[in-house]
Amino acid sequence: MKGILMQKSVNLRSFLTASWLGWQIESNWTDPFLFATYSIIKPVAGAAILVLMYSIVTQGNFESPVFAYLYLGNAFYQYVPAVLTGVSWTIIEDREHYRTLKYIYTAPVNIPFYLFGRAVAKFIVGTFGVVITIAAGVLFLNVPLDWSQVNWPLFLLTLVLGIIMLAVSGLILAGITLKTARHSYYIGDVVAGGLFLFTGAIFPLEVLPVWLRPVGYLLPITYWLELIRRSLVGAVAEAFPTFTTLSNGDLLLILAASSLAFGIASIFIFRSCDHQARERGLIDQTTNY
């Protein structure tokens, strides 16, 4: 019992201390104005490009439910690179730049919890981007978001579940980063970019060729985005094609189950990478760019 409590406190300490550190690093913009501009302009510009493409393709049909579908999907998808990168980037940063990874490793730190903690700041900045994007959509683009229709419990539950799912998936990338020493600088962004098309973020899976669709059905992100949309614009979302036969409860169950499966796999993969990294002496190996 005492052992379990002590382990708990190690995990919590690792998480909280790392969150503090992550925030110090993330908020260390010498120019807060630059920081604000960057975190507003990047998400808004991304959304603007998408809206522009949409309006050209549909000749300005903003009434269609597809518009809400893609706008919200894109907005919330920002969490994917933010959290995946947040969890995995720390390995590179600590190993190559600060050269502290070996000291973190030799301390009584739970490395996954440490990585989650370091990602918190990126999550907060990501949230800022999501909020800005949604606000811009509602204010200027008539995204049909009716606050009184929002299913808040479902939204919050889905959001929390999704963030945990993304954080744990980030461990897979962290493990790969740990093992490969080189060339994994943008792995979080690359993977997030690659999955963008398979998760129904901006168009339904039906648009994909049949043989590619299973990729989307296997990824928890797909169900997460669908649930987020349903919780926000329930009435409109009923017109979205992919999961018409599934209820919110079904989707939640699938999301939870697939997240669990992913989570278990992530932990095994991370452990195995960690083990191999120690066998090959990669924990403190710098590549000297």
Binding site: Q24, R99, T100, K102, Y103, P108
Partner: peptide, 30 residues
């Protein structure tokens, strides 16, 4: 790991944007 600590000489590791006190305090937290 609970019972050891380690220092390598001849290197400049540390979180440069933290003060000396913050760097040390943070490790003590772990």
């Amino acid at each position: 790991r609970k019972r050891i600590n380690m220092v390598s000489g001849g290197e400049t590791s540390g979180y440069g944007l933290l003060t000396v006190r913050e760097n040390l305090w943070m490790f003590a937290q772990f």
